[in-house]
């Protein structure tokens, strides 16, 4: 009896989270008339795959996709390069001002993005970088969360391994690349997945930093498309599906890493 109740609660909850997303797919395949019908359609009479082609004709959606891939891709790559390097230094080195620098890094965790958005906009305008990839990418090249995650992973690696390599004459870079990095692979997977998904979904900064449609990323391009063509719900939904599919696929094939990532960053 109690078990049946548990299943019922979980099933209803799962339906509430999943069915709206399935309805988004349905909307994306409806005709314009179906989306505007006074008696809303649950599933289209005949799926309109042409909606996707129509979307690309009405808006520079190809540009949106390329921009999103470049921005999220470069930022992810940068995190994978720098977050473990900085994490390694804080895990294994002693040097002047170490604690001061660490506290300053900690402090950046307390700085939400909205605090930076106005000065970053003014800075980018001053540099002439508004509406460019530099503007979209540079503010997110590293972050303290990723650095802490990597530091946690690197700390348990025995110091003796590093000392032995030094005695053997290995260079500092070689020690980092050959001894430290290979041991952090699971953490790097978590870091890469999270960084990519969050940057792929990022909304506020690309909204502020872009001025022409051709530079917009998918979330911003799609939202502004919807403001302009607010009756074309079949196309808005088609764009949503395009935005959704990559993260959904990444999540389905690696959901264990996502769950691990949440608990790792959550319960430091």
């Amino acid at each position: 009896m109690r078990r049946a109740l548990t299943y019922a609660v979980l099933t209803v909850s799962a339906l509430i989270t999943v069915v709206p997303l399935l309805y988004m797919v349905s909307l994306a395949l409806q005709t314009e008339a179906e989306t505007l019908s006074a008696d809303p359609v649950l599933w289209p009479a005949s799926p309109q795959f042409g909606n996707f082609a129509e979307l690309f004709e009405r808006a520079p959606f190809g540009d949106f996709i390329v921009n999103s891939l470049i921005v999220a891709g470069v930022i992810t790559l940068s995190h994978l390069i720098f977050d473990p390097l900085v994490g390694y230094v804080f895990a294994k080195f002693r040097f002047p001002l170490r604690n001061t620098l660490f506290v300053l890094l900690l402090a950046t965790l307390m700085v939400p993005f909205f605090v930076r958005m106005i000065p970053l906009y003014v800075m980018m305008a001053g540099l002439g970088w508004l509406d460019s990839y530099q503007a979209l990418i540079t503010p997110f090249l590293m972050d303290a969360f990723g650095i802490f995650l990597m530091r946690q992973f690197i700390q348990p690696i025995p110091d003796d391994l590093i000392s032995a390599a030094r005695i053997d004459g290995a260079s500092e870079m070689a020690i980092y690349r050959k001894i430290i990095l290979p041991q952090t692979r699971p953490a790097l997977a978590v870091l890469g997945l999270f960084t990519f998904v969050f940057q792929w979904n990022e909304f506020l900064w690309p909204l502020i930093a872009t001025t022409t449609p051709e530079m917009r990323t998918i979330p911003v391009g799609l939202t502004l498309f919807n403001q302009e063509y607010f009756t074309l719900w079949h196309l808005t939904a088609a764009g949503s599906v395009i935005l959704f599919v990559p993260t959904a696929v990444l999540f389905l094939v690696s959901q264990r890493y996502f769950v691990k990532g949440i608990t790792l960053t959550g319960l430091r």
Binding site: S13, A14, T17, V18, P20, L21, Y23, M24, V197, W200, N201, F203, I218, P219, V220, L222, T223, N226, T236, A237, S240, L243, F244, T247, A248, F251, Q255, F258, V259
Partner: peptide
């Protein structure tokens, strides 16, 4: 239950 968390606020809002 976790899928919406990984969905962009743009999708969530528009949908």
């Amino acid at each position: 239950l976790l899928v919406p968390y990984l969905t962009s606020v743009a999708i969530v809002g528009l949908l």
